[in-house]
Amino acid sequence: MFSRLTVLAAAITPHDSGVRQMAALSARLAYVMMCLTLCWGVLTATGWVRRTTGRQALRSGHMVLATLTLAFGTLHAAAFTFLDEHFSVVQLIIPFVGPTRHAFGIIGLELMFAVAITVGMRKLMFYRNWLRIHQLAYPAVGLTVIHSWFGAAANGHLSLLWLAGLTLLVPTVTITILRFLPVETLARIGLVEAEPVGPTGPTDDPGGSARTQRINVSVDNQRCRRYGICQAEAPQVFQLTEDGRLHYERRPDPRDSAQARAAARACPTRAIELRENTR
């Protein structure tokens, strides 16, 4: 085994060694940026950080991180074409032509590019279709993480990934899981405040719970910027039409009240107002 490793090490030329170092560095930077992009995107979509900075700053920060992820990921893939025994373009863009561990990275990076392309087509698509494509970023990150771990194991860098990779991956996975938990669960464990529905606080009516309480919904058109976050949180209450107009249920079904509250909390411009329906 030792003699085999010695032969393999001797077969690597100084040129290949430099290219491999560049590929490894770009891969690590892409991994870091990918985790930060996902975390920042979730924090932006949920509105959890809207109080510390403006919406435009949040959106710009997410786009910058995503662009850096794609740039470093592309650099990592392109580096393999400069090896003495280089990969062909076909091997770099078509999954499973080469080793399986590379296929995970190829699919993940291509999904990320698909998401990035559709960002510029937001106004040309129905919001729900656009949202489904945008959510492909979650499996793309998962596939890329698998590729990173397999690659680190194959290249003998697994110890580094255990230390640095887990440090970034654990909070990324945690924040993503929290993104999809029900609002009631988040309020119960103390991560979000159980905000009152109206200006005078929640009702003491014993006939209904906070989850099924009947509410009235109104939207300030001067504040609303049609980002579509409300529709993502409460699609039964808020709908963005193809021409960019927002339609919403003024008196939604009590079963949708929790989702309406989540939409009001997530709205970065605070355009949604909820009031108790006393009738």
Rank of each mutant, 00 (worst) to 15 (best):
V97F: 04
R179H: 09
D205K: 01
R225S: 00
R211K: 12
F87K: 10
L36E: 01
G190N: 06
W149K: 07
D253R: 09
V115N: 07
I107H: 07
G142F: 11
G73L: 02
A164T: 12
S26L: 08
L181P: 06
H134E: 04
T185H: 12
L8G: 03
M22L: 15
I272L: 05
L43M: 14
F82M: 12
G61D: 08
E233S: 10
A154K: 11
R179L: 05
Q231T: 01
F2Q: 15
D16P: 05
V7T: 14
A66Q: 03
Q239C: 07
R4Y: 10
S3L: 11
R265I: 03
L68I: 02
Y31P: 01
L169F: 09
G120E: 04
H147R: 08
D253M: 05
Q222K: 09
T269C: 08
T69V: 03
P95W: 01
P268H: 04
T185Q: 14
A266N: 05
M22I: 14
Q259L: 11
V119L: 13
H134D: 07
G61H: 07
L168A: 14
N155L: 11
V183P: 00
F87W: 10
V90W: 09
Q259F: 10
F113M: 12
I94D: 00
L124R: 15
P268S: 04
R55F: 13
R250S: 12
A152V: 01
N155T: 14
H147E: 07
R261H: 11
T144I: 07
S88W: 01
R55H: 12
F96S: 05
Q135A: 14
A262W: 09
T278Y: 09
G151I: 00
Q213E: 12
L178S: 13
A194P: 06
S257K: 08
P139N: 01
Q213L: 14
V97P: 02
Q239N: 11
D253A: 09
V49M: 08
I12E: 14
A30R: 04
M125E: 07
R188V: 02
P196W: 09
G156P: 05
P202F: 12
S257N: 13
D205W: 04
L166H: 06
L160P: 00
T53S: 12
T174Y: 13
F80K: 02
W162E: 01
L191A: 10
G73W: 03
I12M: 10
E195L: 15
I189L: 13
P254M: 06
R275M: 10
L65H: 00
T46N: 06
F82H: 12
P235Q: 00
P171Q: 02
R51I: 04
L75F: 08
L168V: 13
T67H: 04
I272R: 02
L136R: 02
P199D: 12
R211G: 08
A77L: 10
R132H: 10
G73Q: 03
N277F: 13
P206K: 00
M22A: 15
A30H: 05
M125S: 10
Q231D: 02
V197D: 03
V170P: 10
L5P: 01
A262P: 08
